[in-house]
Amino acid sequence: MSIGEKLTQKYKSKLGKLFVGNSLELLTNDKKLSKLKGKVNLIVTSPPFPLNNKKQYGNEKGDEYKDWFIKLAPIFSDLLTDDGSLVIEIGNAWEPERPVQSLLHLECLLGMVKHPEANLRLIQEFICYNPSKLPSPAQWVTVNRLRTVDSYTHVWWIAKNDFPKADNSKVLRPYSDSMKQLLKRQSYNSGKRPSEHQISEKGFLKDNGGSISHNFFEMEALEEKREVRLPHSVLSFSNTNSNGYFLKTCRDKGITPHPARMSGGLVNFFIQFLTDEDDLVLDPFSGSNTTGYCAEKLNRKWISFEIKEDYIKQAIIRFSDPELKSPLK
Rank of each mutant, 00 (worst) to 15 (best):
H258C: 06
S13C: 07
G84A: 06
E97G: 04
K10A: 09
L182P: 02
I127L: 13
T45C: 13
S233Y: 02
N92C: 11
G91V: 01
S211N: 06
I88Q: 10
K192E: 10
D207H: 10
A315G: 09
S34A: 11
K225C: 02
K37F: 04
I212F: 08
P137Y: 05
F69C: 11
P116Y: 07
K37E: 12
G292M: 13
S46H: 10
S233I: 10
A138I: 00
K55T: 05
D321W: 10
D82C: 01
T291A: 08
I123W: 05
K133R: 15
H197F: 03
S242A: 15
Y293F: 13
I158C: 13
W157M: 02
G209D: 08
S178Q: 11
S34M: 04
L122G: 11
L230R: 12
V149K: 13
Y293V: 06
T249E: 14
K297V: 00
L103F: 11
P327C: 02
R193S: 15
E5Q: 08
P164F: 03
D252Y: 12
F204W: 13
R226I: 02
D150C: 09
F216C: 09
E223W: 15
K35F: 12
K248A: 00
S211A: 10
L298W: 06
F19S: 06
K297P: 04
R193Y: 03
Y175V: 00
R98K: 14
L134V: 05
G91I: 00
S136P: 04
K170C: 06
V100S: 09
F217I: 06
G254V: 03
Y311C: 02
K253H: 14
K114A: 12
D207W: 06
T81H: 01
